[in-house]
Amino acid sequence: MARPTELSTSLAFTGLLESLPVTSSSTTSRVVVNNPALRVVVFAFDEGELLTEHSSPRAVVVHLLDGAIRFTVGDDEHTMAPGDVLYLAPGERHALVADAPSRLSLVMVDVDETAAAPAGAD
């Protein structure tokens, strides 16, 4: 488990892509931020590596930094290129396959009951 990141402390992480190379036949990750509000993880996938279907209780934003992946959300497959962003609602089933050596940033945000209510709901 990564050391908690204080909500009240700003910080910068530089050189992340250089410090997390794609490793042959592997999936690796590094937790960058970890606090009660959010968690940021950078992943590196070699070509052919995958994450099997799973879900998260948190809202998730995926940003492909380099490479190419096929990201499945429910029954829909999305071919992602560098710069593409995908949003997952809490509890959404998802999986991915790397079609090339790839790195992505994953931001998981805790959503409380009030924030999850539809606009205009009281």
Rank of each mutant, 00 (worst) to 15 (best):
G74R: 06
V33I: 15
E18I: 00
D84L: 01
L88W: 02
M108P: 00
E49N: 09
A98V: 06
G74T: 04
L104R: 04
T23V: 15
F43L: 13
V107D: 00
A98I: 05
G15W: 04
D75E: 15
T72E: 06
M80H: 02
S25D: 14
A89T: 09
D75L: 05
V31P: 06
A44K: 05
S56I: 02
V62Q: 04
V41R: 07
L106M: 14
G83M: 11
T72Q: 12
S25Y: 08
F43R: 13
M1T: 10
T27F: 05
L65C: 05
P101A: 15
T114R: 14
S24E: 15
L104I: 03
L7H: 06
P90F: 07
A119N: 11
V40H: 06
L64C: 03
A81H: 13
V60P: 00
A12T: 14
D112Q: 07
V62I: 14
E113D: 14
V85N: 10
N34E: 13
V85G: 11
V109F: 03
S8I: 05
V111M: 12
F13P: 00
G74Y: 06
E49H: 08
V22Q: 03
V42Y: 03
R93S: 08
L38V: 11
E92K: 11
V22G: 02
T52H: 13
A89Y: 02
